[in-house]
Design a protein around this nucleic acid. Structure first.
Lengths: 145, 145
DNA sequence: TTGTCTGCAAAGGGTTTGCAGAACT
DNA sequence: AGTTCTGCAAACCCTTTGCAGACAA
């Protein structure tokens, strides 16, 4: 995490941009939360710095995405969710019943991606994939959100 | 198409609901358009019946979905797209560059689904799947929307 | 100091809701 | 006639934009 913090400073500097408390806090929040909507990031940041505006969250998430530090995915209806764009790329499994979001190794997608590339010339963007369905949890129904 | 029309009447009647011109038009539009946002369905319906309100489109799409006649998917940012819930289930490939939406046989997903079911107990909802990536079209860039 | 960043307020797009009149059965 | 459905208008949620003051470099 501290690694990303310092690289944030460097990446910003390299582009003539500035390191601010807000930017550090937003990045930290995304890294900690795992999958979070702008709203959730906002809440997390607010716990540390109450005055931060939601507008800043949106602008900062966009910036961090341009810098390649985070990515977003549309896990279902409504707001997108942001997560770190680290090496640990993963595919999302979203449960239609309870809303749980599981992650699976993109490895599982290998054969499929190759097939699509070969037959359709389509390059799948693995980090952006979300599969909807029903999770196998025994308490799935109860967890319904 | 006429088949769906009459079954629409039956399905509605069976639930004490009513068949209206608007409902027939919305269903027709979805069937014809293939993949359409509420906005696009609205435009299509308006060409036949000018006075239909966007509110009615939303309410009708929701109804048709409850009846199992159509489904929706989130192909990218913004509005969802609706399509018929017929037998021709398909998976969507959305190009991040030009926005094209291709369809592929869900067959391709068979092995993956089995693996996820076996290893994670997750039942993938095939009709709801959208994969993002880059299509192989030679004129992809130019088609950019 | 200088140009970037932030907060605030307001606008914008898409979707939903309340209500009274219109329409289906 | 009795309900359901529709159109209209307004409310809502989420996101973006304009602008002046705050702040990093």
């Amino acid at each position: 995490m501290t690694v990303s913090e310092s690289s944030l400073a460097e990446m910003l500097r390299a582009r003539g941009l500035r390191l601010t408390a807000q930017r550090q806090l937003v990045l930290e929040a995304v890294l900690e939360l795992g999958h979070a909507t702008p709203e959730q990031v906002h809440s997390a940041v607010r716990e540390v710095a109450a005055g931060v505006n939601i507008t800043t969250i949106y602008r900062t998430l966009e910036l961090l995405e341009r810098l390649g530090l985070v990515t977003h995915t549309h896990l279902s209806h409504g707001s997108p969710t942001y997560h770190s764009a680290g090496e640990d790329t993963h595919v999302h499994l979203v449960c239609r019943i309870c809303g749980a979001v599981d992650e699976v190794d993109p490895e599982v997608f290998g054969p499929l991606c190759e097939k699509l590339a070969a037959e359709q010339g389509f390059q799948v963007d693995i980090g952006h994939v979300a599969l909807f369905g029903v999770c196998g949890r025994s308490d799935c129904e109860e967890r319904r959100e």
